[in-house]
Design a protein around this nucleic acid. Structure first.
Lengths: 202, 202
DNA sequence: GTCTATACCTAGATAGAC
DNA sequence: GTCTATCTAGGTATAGAC
């Protein structure tokens, strides 16, 4: 079907829209942003823009996917460095502090897409699953290395960690004085202490 | 100004609307619910309903306040029983499992009301503050009783606990197989273990 | 004080011209 | 690939009946 975007111009415009949209969302906030505003920002009419993404929701999902790709490169922390799981997460959180618009978009869409019919539902559902699975894997690696006790349930810890990150972001959005990174590190510290309580090794 | 609702009939109708709205939201979901549907459910026109609450958002905030009052009575856990902080929370979470519509409403509005201009913003902001303060107080009580080490920052633990609850709810909304209560209890268990690591008291 | 009817506005989506 | 025109849905404001 010769997918749209196969022509250089279209591809470039798509990119431009993604970039600008991010800027606008960052400034205006997610719920406040309308398609028209975004269209204005790139010199298109509403429908000129929708031609590229089909719908508002689709555009926003694309923004998040775009971010995921970038983050995955920057903070992926795939191979090897699982010893620094906490520090990797902390870096990621710290980075998020600089892009409140994105965080708001993420939080907003997450909530909106809870109904299974929502166009963005699959994206988030899958994202949660992937992150939980990855997290659990890393935890198991840490357990094998003796950094986390084997008694801890890997899936559960991964789930809780994700919850902490999500939850802290919400609170931060309501009160930017809240230091997400610090709170997360305190949480992670406690997890670490479980392995080596009060300097007693066993 | 002779506030509306000073007449018995109005008061009763308000109650009825609140109840029915809850039912509808529970069934249709938050984002799917329209004012017209709610109006139909209580045998009013759209504007007949809006007469009572002014706007859609206002109505929803009222629903949440209403729930807060009920929950506060049922799971408030104010005086004395702070020793069971975790169990109290767990009960609350377990209860939420039975009212997914409410949880969805809460999650949806929380995200939507992040912009400071949103009519529900103040409600959530204040709620977070109150819950953090209350939680921190309880933590301090537990510390005084030696159930949590003094080295833990009470505010931080309260913040994290709130985050865990919020975050678990989101994941649960995306996948009801996730056992929020169990995950929360695991989390809380670990907190407890910090005080008595591996049976070593100090 | 309680409620209806009407009219209005915003915002997203669709169809078809260019 | 982009625009104009048009449609629809849903929330809101106002006037006034009961």
């Amino acid at each position: 079907m010769a997918r749209q975007g196969s022509y250089p111009k279209g591809v470039a415009k798509r990119e431009e829209i993604l970039e600008k949209a991010l800027e606008v969302v960052a400034r205006v906030g997610y719920s406040g942003t309308t398609v028209r505003q975004l269209a204005d920002a790139v010199g298109l009419t509403q429908n000129g823009l929708l031609y590229y993404f089909g719908s508002k929701e689709n555009l926003f999902v694309e923004i998040l996917r775009h971010r995921d790709r970038l983050d995955d490169i920057a903070y992926g922390g795939h191979e090897g460095d699982s010893g620094d799981m906490g520090e990797g997460m902390a870096k990621f959180i710290r980075h998020n502090t600089d892009v409140p618009g994105l965080v708001q978009l993420h939080a907003g869409l997450t909530a909106e897409a809870i109904s299974p019919e929502h166009p963005a539902h699959a994206y988030f559902q899958e994202r949660y699953e992937v992150f939980r699975a990855r997290g659990a894997d890393t935890v198991r690696t840490l357990q094998a290395a003796g950094k986390i006790p084997g008694s801890v349930d890997a899936e559960s810890l991964a789930t809780i960690m994700l919850a902490v990150v999500d939850g802290l972001q919400t609170q931060w959005l309501y009160d930017p004085r809240i230091d997400m990174t610090e709170h997360f590190l305190r949480f992670w510290d406690q997890v670490g202490k479980l392995a080596a309580p009060e300097g007693i090794s066993r």
